[in-house]
Structure formats: structure tokens, C-alpha cells
Design a protein around this nucleic acid. Structure first.
Lengths: 144, 144
DNA sequence: TCAAAAAAAGATAAAAAACTCTTTTTATTT
DNA sequence: AAATAAAAAGAGTTTTTTATCTTTTTTTGA
């Protein structure tokens, strides 16, 4: 579904969001630890997300990544687009370039509904939304 | 969503199904041409599908791939499992190994519904079903 | 103003996926 | 029986993705 980079990105962003509630900054090391992802790989990903303006960062001692209120309004979809592009929006499940409403593949209309829900899921969940969910103790990000 | 190999496999199988209505055999060359996939790559894929008993083949002159009535009853899901394994059934969207009903990630329940529909789509469509769809002229497999 | 801490950037390496080529085996047709 | 046509098998190669390592830049605090 999503690339590994994208999965890491989503988890990392949710983690940063949680930690930056009180304007704190989070280091790559902390992000890597809590998402158990390779540190240098996460570093690259955060760099990319910073370039795409989905997260803020400051260098130097006590630096790190954080989110302001605008950042928290970004959706999972924004992260997905930043990492994997918009192929989830555009591509045919069977990989047919010509597949369209007028030229549908045999599963086009069935998949259309699924895609609609998938898009709804990633667009309707903002990064900030997860703070509450995780705080409630009913949802988790842990890997093991 | 699906790997490239899996996409090719689905398209190839639908093509073979169509052609083997009158017991005809289809060569790798024909499959490759009509799905516009690399010939040797399709050869490997068909070989694998043959090993997994999703399609029949005969070697030698006038040989090729074909499906009997049992083969036509296989679903897209069977092809997907053969090519990509069952990760579509089992994996968390965020890639969390511990994600489960009791330990849900923040999008677990939303994704659960989507996954259910996705699985329904691939399980309820048999390879044979596509023959009619394609014959009706309302659906296409073409790539350009 | 210097040392240290952190991200940014650049370069490289490893693994997986996608793709290609060659040889072998099997069956068929003449 | 020989020639041929086709898949099966085996062995690469290329590309993409994932991951790692090193150097540079920026900031800060002592």
C-alpha cells in the first residue's frame, strides 16, 4: 500500500506531533527509537518532510523537529503525497495506464469505491487528530 | 497495492482465461504482447502460477498455457496470494507488527473496513467472471 | 569565541524487485 | 528418428528501494 519510507514518515510525524504539544523539539534519535526505524533513514525522511514544509526543524543544541498549529492540521494524505506521490489517487489497481471511467478495467468500479474510502481515511485524519486518540490510551503506535 | 509481478499475473491470467474458452493454448509470446509486459518476465510469472496449479501448461509444439473449468473458478485473491503472499490480509497499513484488535493503531478500525471490501473484491471475482465482462465490450484490459 | 549538539547534505552500500538471457527438458509433428 | 516448438529451469543484470556512513552547516550555550 504505502512504501516503507511512507510508513515511517507517518509514524514519525504522529510521534513528533505528540511530543510537540508543549513546543518541545524532538531529535532524530528519539524519533528513530520510538518508531523503531533506522536512525539515518528516519533522518533522511524527516529532512524531506521538512523540505516539503510538513514539519519544522531547528539545528544546533536543543534543536530538533517540532510542529506548529498549522502543521498539525496536515492530513495523513499530505504525508503520503509527499513520500509516495499521488499514485494512490491516480493509478489503476491492475496498473493499466488507459484505465478510466470511459475505458474501465474489469474491477474499475469496484475499486473506485474502495479507493474513495481509502482517500477519505487519509484525508479526514489530520496529524493532530491522533494526539487525542493516543492520549486516550485506546490506540497505540508501538511495534512490539 | 499489488507488486508489478502480481499485476502482470492478474492480467495474464485474465487473458489466458479468455483465450482458453475453446481449449486453445496461449504462448508466452502472445500473453506478453497482449498484456504488454516483458516476455521473459511473464514467462517466469506463468511458470510460478503453473507450479501453484492456477493454470495448466503443455510443452512442445502447439503447447502453451490454458485453463480448465476448475482453473476458471480461482479468484483474483488466489493469484494475489500466489504472487504477493497474504500480507494484504494480515498487515497493518502503518506496518506495525503489534497492531491488532486489542492493540490497534490509530487507523486500525477505519482500515479494517477498507480491507474487508478489498478482500471481498478479490475473493468474489473469479477469473472466469471476467470473460463475460470483457466479452460484453464494456470493460477493457488494454494499456494504451 | 569556542566546543558541542543538532539537522542538512552528500555519498555509498545492501537488499529487494523487476527484468533479461541462455540452456535444458519435453512434447509434437513430419 | 529427427527437427522443431514450446515451457521449465537456471543464472545473470539492472533498477529501485531501503539503509548506512561521513562530512558540512547551523545554532547555542558555556
Amino acid at each position: 500500500m504505502f512504501s516503507k519510507s511512507c510508513e515511517y514518515a507517518i509514524k514519525a510525524m504522529i510521534f513528533v506531533a505528540q511530543k510537540s504539544k508543549d513546543q518541545a523539539r524532538v531529535s532524530v534519535k528519539d524519533i528513530a527509537k520510538s518508531t523503531d526505524a533506522p536512525e539515518h533513514f528516519i533522518a533522511k525522511i524527516m529532512q524531506e518532510l521538512g523540505r516539503k514544509r510538513l514539519v519544522h526543524s531547528v539545528k544546533g543544541p536543543n534543536g530538533g523537529f517540532y510542529m506548529d498549529n498549522e502543521d498539525l492540521k496536515n492530513s495523513i494524505s499530505d504525508i503520503v503525497k509527499a513520500m509516495d506521490g499521488d499514485k494512490i489517487y491516480t493509478d489503476c489497481v491492475l496498473g493499466l495506464k488507459a484505465c478510466s471511467e470511459k475505458n474501465p478495467c474489469p474491477v474499475h468500479f469496484e475499486y473506485k469505491e474502495i479507493k474513495k474510502n481509502l482517500i477519505k481515511m487519509i484525508e479526514n485524519n489530520t496529524i493532530g487528530d491522533f494526539n487525542e486518540k493516543l492520549d486516550s490510551g485506546k490506540f497505540f503506535l508501538k511495534n512490539q
